[in-house]
């Protein structure tokens, strides 16, 4: 059976390739932030699909349907709770994930596209958070969206167009809710999915080892060795070229490191 699957799809090799790739051991917990983000987005998709079984995107029924989900539907409080809380956690985890990436310099060559798709994903998630808030059609969501739309209306040159595009007219009403619903439920998730795919593919392509942190022991050993060599040479040659050598070594190391990554 396994052989048959392997012959027809090559899935076993793919899975082994996927599962047994060596990954950093030192920073393992730091590297769970990315997978946590993925997990929370999956939760968003799942609970979002479930909420659509009861949610109605019309101004006269939206609030009622959310109220129904919260108070009448079995586990409605849980399903909507997971959607709400995982969205909040998602933004926090994305912030941490970005900070980790930034401070460890993991966006550097050859990982520029990882960073760019990451920023696109961040913007998409912010868009999802903004549009999702209005769907409840309650005071909190409505007025926060009003402020957001008004901010858009201050865009130079295109302000009026932006505001009326988001409103679906020149006042807040049925069209506004319909638009935010379409953007929140189809447009942005549909855009999110391929970028997640690209982000993960690039991660696999370039590997997780983007950080000097993972080479600490080896670098320490190298430096120790170099220091000893330096010392030995100093003993032999006399004093003059010690400092110069040191500078050259550092440069070489970085160049070697760089070409190594390509």
């Amino acid at each position: 059976m396994v052989d048959w699957m392997e012959d027809r799809t090559g899935i076993v090799t793919q899975l082994e390739h996927f599962l047994y790739e060596p990954v950093p051991k030192r920073g393992a917990w730091l590297y769970t932030l990315g997978s946590a983000t993925l997990f929370l987005i999956v939760l968003q998709f799942l609970t979002g699909i479930l909420l659509l079984f009861y949610y109605v995107p019309t101004t006269d029924h939206a609030w009622n349907s959310v109220y129904y989900i919260m108070n009448e539907a079995y586990f409605g409080q849980l399903i909507r709770g997971i959607h709400y809380w995982s969205a909040n956690f998602l933004l926090a985890v994305i912030g941490l994930h970005m900070a980790r990436t930034f401070f460890s310099g993991s966006y550097k060559a050859p990982r520029e596209w990882n960073w760019i798709t990451g920023v696109i994903l961040l913007l998409l998630v912010i868009g999802l958070a903004f549009t999702g808030y209005l769907l409840r059609w309650d005071q909190d969501g409505f007025w926060a969206s009003v402020v957001g739309i008004k901010i858009g209306s201050y865009s130079p040159f295109i302000g009026g167009y932006v505001a009326n595009f988001l409103l679906g007219g020149d006042v807040a009403g049925p069209a506004t809710l319909a638009r935010f619903f379409a953007i929140h439920v189809w447009l942005l998730p549909a855009a999110l999915a391929p970028f997640i795919g690209i982000h993960l593919y690039l991660l696999r392509r370039h590997g997780e080892f983007g950080n000097q942190f993972e080479y600490t022991d080896r670098l320490a050993k190298l430096h120790e060795q170099q220091r000893l060599e330096e010392y030995a040479r100093y003993e032999l040659d006399g004093e003059e070229d010690g400092a110069e050598e040191d500078g050259r070594n550092g440069e070489d190391r970085e160049n070697g490191r760089y070409s190594d990554r390509e």
């Binding site: 996927f18 599962l19 047994y20 790739e21 060596p22 990954v23 950093p24 051991k25 030192r26 393992a28 590297y31 769970t32 997978s35 080892f209 993972e214 080479y215 600490t216 022991d217 080896r218 670098l219 050993k221 190298l222 060795q225 070594n249 070489d252 190391r253 070697g256 490191r257 190594d260 990554r261």
Partner: peptide, 21 residues
């Protein structure tokens, strides 16, 4: 023997993506 050329060849200590990570 760690030299400048091979120091970044492999990291300190790795684990398999599965099950470790």
């Amino acid at each position: 023997v760690i030299t400048e050329d091979n120091v970044f060849d492999k990291p300190d200590e790795t684990m398999g993506f599965f099950p470790g990570q």
